[in-house]
Design a protein around this nucleic acid. Structure first.
Length: 848
RNA sequence: GGGCGAGUGGCGGAAUUGGUAGACGCGUUGGUCUUAGGAACCAAUAGUGCAAGCUGUGAAGGUUCGAGUCCUUUCUCGCCUACCA
């Protein structure tokens, strides 16, 4: 017998699968479809362990579903637009397209080595014209439907790089690259009207039964629906301002009014443009907003105006109007009324500026003279000090009643407010999908005619120019439409747009006319199982959901409400971190273990400081390169390990020892396979006790099937070890060769989702590779086993009796009475009560 | 501050959802075979006891014949979110 040579075996099967077209998918209405999709990677250079984990999980599922007889589609593509390409290209003086395509081919090769069951015929790349031309058409369609518009909006502006920064690129108020203090600048930008679908996006969550609750809660919070009321406050003062509109969820506390607070960006701020004190205050406000801790501590500061506002329910009451740092412009109306007694922020503000604090809600167990002292009271209770609102139950009854009154008096309106804002899709970048729009001399917008799509990215652009490189492409910018001169839009689309519909494209990846083909999405959509990192819980997954609704808007042919029927979010791959004595990060390759301590390789004087296990990242140098690992141990061993150590939804700790153990296990499994082979070929008929093997196999079919259905992939690996442990003992006994063959074939099928090359090789070796179907559970075999009955005396386990299934209480009792148990525990005692659980246990309650 | 989730051996983690706690793996210990072992194989491995046994799932209560699992209180940790009126 030869050692198991993973290199030869894995290459052989990968070639064979390719030649057979084993993973090609096409519409087949006689079969139930299963669309399995993992989040497609950004082609950054090489695959990392996170990809290995993500795609292994998806591959196990795809292969399992195939064996179950589903018509599986399991495609792969590239999220190929984005800044890293632009940055890398700039640094190395390359074309972003070249850089990207090179990475794609490297990573594709690496993914192939993992033995993934991917239909590569459907491969797409978002940076190809073939892809983005359809995206441009979608953009125009949404524009026609009124779901796309242009408006001025604030952006993070880096004055040195002359570019817009995403929020995550602003670190402590400075640009991540230039280090310049980031400015807020107003720019004209394109927006998708996602907020139009706020309610739908919220309601849709209820139908997503196969989504993790966590993600649904995150989206729900992000959409942020709140029920309340807008209230108009009349004002007086030296400004031409007659009234201020506020949004509140607690109109019932209006008698506790103490002040109005406005955002520094509120339209009234225009009267303070030349007020240096106000401008200073505004600056101060933007400073406090930068660090997270500052927000957490959140000192409330205000700027008092000369305006006074009248309480709409009590016109005798006049309160001051402030600008305040804790009021956001883009929520509600950028203005709130302050009720310090029942809102902690208002409370802190009132304390600081010595404003009136009037209690208008008392807890149920307090008297009417209850007053708020050290902190605001926001719990339930009863209204007090509120004239005609007194005695109403807060919050429900009192809110509804107050809104009714305000509406009657025409000073307020019921209002539902969403936190979700429209999606700004303009990016001042080169490496993205061009926005198919143009402007005339007056700045009026015109769509690029659909027949002229795609608007192609120009090539050989100078990426080192300041600002948006496309803006510097004078020739490219010029365009003639209907004989008139126009200037192209130079912004490109946020790359999240590309990933908002790619799952549709996979269904019709080669369709030239349109982004998808109706009959193909009708068959394949929705994605049955989507798998990816939880970091996309909000943006990507919400944008994709929006995109489906936008495509279906005013389009009856498009009937899918949700893109992803099932969602699974896998955990990250972690590794210990290492530092030298000077606190420089060290990679695992730079160190060695001597005794119990780590040292820098070849240097016993330099001890290494071992840090906590953290998600693998280049900056901490705690990365393990999958390519080396696959080369050293093989794809099956890597797949086995990456699945084995933790539940897939949790983080997993990379361990070299664990990896080696998986590798060794496959070697052991190969030895076992050869023993089984010998036994099968020895052709001994009707010998031995075969029942145990049959029952065990059947139990394993049940366990593994259940664990696959429940995504307990780590337990499946444990089950595989169990099978090994059992078989390696059982094989020493006498077994009928036909029964062994039958059982072993089933077991090999069970092995094939996680370790496909190995399983295929073993099947072929025994000529068992025909007619592969996921084995069925034989309920008969489960039924007639004997049962370990637990015998408890007064709730304590005293014995385990192995007896027939389905025996009744009396039979079990008579067995117990004839057992030595009764001598020990039941002699001279009376049994008060017997609890009997069929096929499980019996509990005897006796007098002590 | 708000939301979500989790606490089980030295470690990663199992437990048919209220019914034998610790499956499976790593590590450790002992042994066998080897020139050698950081290879392979065998055995042990929650704690405590010579043993029968007793104690054990972050802590304290409770429900139950029976609780890792359900309820109440509490502590710790992780993740997400950020003044949302």
């Amino acid at each position: 017998m030869e050692r198991y040579n993973f290199k030869i075996v894995e290459e052989k099967w990968q070639e064979k699968w390719l030649k057979l077209g084993a993973f090609k998918s096409k519409i087949d209405h006689s079969k139930e479809k299963f669309y399995c999709l993992e989040m497609f990677p950004y082609p950054s250079g090489k695959i990392h362990m996170g990809h290995v984990r993500n795609y292994t999980i998806g591959d196990v599922l795809s292969r399992y579903k195939s064996l179950q007889g589903y018509n599986v589609m399991h495609p792969m593509g590239w999220d190929a637009f984005g800044m890293p390409a632009e940055n890398a290209a700039r640094e190395n003086n390359l074309d972003p397209k070249e850089w990207t395509n090179k990475n794609i081919s490297t990573m594709k090769g690496q993914l192939k080595k993992l033995g993934l069951s991917i239909d590569w015929d459907r491969e797409i790349s978002t940076c190809s014209e073939q892809y983005y031309k359809h995206q441009q058409l979608f953009f125009l369609e949404l524009y026609e439907k009124g779901l796309v518009y242009r408006k001025e909006n604030y952006v993070n502006w880096d004055p040195i790089d002359q570019t817009v920064l995403a929020n995550e690129q602003v670190i402590d108020g400075k640009g991540w690259r230039s280090g310049a203090v980031v400015e807020r600048k107003k720019l004209n930008q394109w927006f998708f009207n996602i907020s139009k679908f706020s309610q739908e996006l919220l309601d849709g969550l209820d139908d997503l039964k196969q989504w993790p609750n966590k993600v649904k809660v995150m989206q729900k919070n992000w959409i942020g629906k709140s029920f309340g009321c807008e209230i108009v406050f009349k004002t007086e003062g030296d400004l031409p301002v007659k009234e201020i509109k506020c949004f509140t969820t607690r109109p019932d506390t209006l008698f506790g009014l103490s002040f109005l607070a406005l955002s520094v960006d509120h339209e009234i701020s225009k009267y303070f443009q030349n007020d240096t004190k106000f401008q200073e205050f505004k600056k101060e406000c933007s400073k406090t907003g930068t660090t997270e801790e500052a927000i957490a501590i959140g000192e409330k500061i205000g700027f008092k105006t000369n305006l006074k506002a009248f309480n709409p329910l009590n016109p005798d009451q006049k309160v001051p109007v402030f600008f305040a740092n804790f009021v956001l412009m883009d929520y509600g109306f950028g203005a709130v009324f302050g009720c310090p007694a029942h809102d902690q922020r208002d409370f802190e503000f009132a304390k600081k500026y010595n404003l009136n604090i009037k209690t208008v809600v008392k807890p149920d167990d307090e008297n009417d003279d209850f007053t708020v002292r050290d902190e605001a009271y926001s719990g339930p209770g009863v209204l007090i000090n509120s004239e005609f609102l007194n005695k109403l139950k807060a919050p429900n009854e009192s809110i509804i009643k107050t809104i009714d009154i305000l509406e009657d008096r025409k000073i307020g309106k019921k209002k539902i407010n969403f936190r979700l804002k429209d999606w700004g899709v303009s990016r001042q970048r080169y490496w993205g999908c061009p926005i198919p729009m143009a402007y005339d001399k007056e700045g009026k917008v015109i769509s690029i005619p659909k027949k002229d799509l795609p608007v192609k990215l120009p090539e050989n652009v100078n990426l080192n120019s300041k600002g948006n490189p496309l803006d510097a492409e004078k020739d490219w910018k010029k365009i003639i439409i209907n004989g008139k001169n126009y200037t192209r839009e130079t912004d490109t689309l946020d790359t999240f747009v590309c990933s908002s519909w790619y799952y549709l494209r996979f269904c019709s990846s080669k369709n030239l006319e349109y982004g998808y083909k109706q009959e193909e999405i009708d068959y394949w959509m929705p994605v049955d199982q989507y798998i990816g990192g939880v970091e996309h819980a909000i943006l990507h997954l919400l944008y994709s959901r929006f995109f489906m609704k936008a495509l279906g808007y005013k389009n009856d042919n498009f009937k899918f409400k949700e893109p992803f029927k099932g969602l699974f979010t896998q955990g990250m791959v972690c590794h210990e971190t290492y530092k030298d004595q000077n606190n420089n990060w060290l990679s695992p390759e730079e160190i060695e273990l001597v005794g119990n301590e780590y040292y820098i390789k070849g240097n016993l004087n330099d001890k290494v400081k071992v840090g906590p296990s953290e998600s693998m990242s280049k900056s901490k140098k705690n990365v393990i390169d999958p390519e080396n690992i696959i080369k050293n141990y093989g794809a099956d061993a890597v797949r086995l390990f990456i699945l084995s150590d933790s539940p897939p939804e949790k983080d997993v700790q990379w361990s070299e020892q664990g990896m080696i153990a998986s590798y060794k296990f496959l070697q052991k499994l190969w030895i076992l396979h050869n023993k089984i082979k010998e036994k099968i070929q020895s052709d001994n008929k009707n010998s031995g006790n075969n029942e145990a093997l049959q029952k065990f196999t059947n139990q394993m079919i049940k366990k593994i099937t259940n664990n696959l259905n429940g995504f307990n992939y780590n337990v499946i690996i444990a089950n595989i070890y169990e099978m090994y442990n059992f078989l390696s003992k059982e094989i020493e006994k006498k077994i009928d060769s036909e029964i062994l063959k039958d059982c072993y074939k089933k077991i090999l099928i069970l092995l094939s989702p996680p370790i496909p090359h190995f399983a295929a090789e073993c099947m072929e070796d025994l000529n068992l590779d025909k007619d592969l179907k996921w084995p069925k559970i034989n309920t008969k075999l489960l039924e007639d086993q004997k049962i370990d009955y637990v015998v408890q005396i007064n709730g304590k386990k005293r014995a385990i009796l192995n007896e027939s299934r389905d025996i009744d209480q009396d039979t079990l009792m008579s067995i117990i009475r004839s057992n030595k148990l009764s001598e020990k525990y039941l002699k001279n005692k009376s049994i008060n009560k017997i609890i009997f659980v069929k096929n499980r246990l019996i509990n005897l309650l006796v007098n002590e």
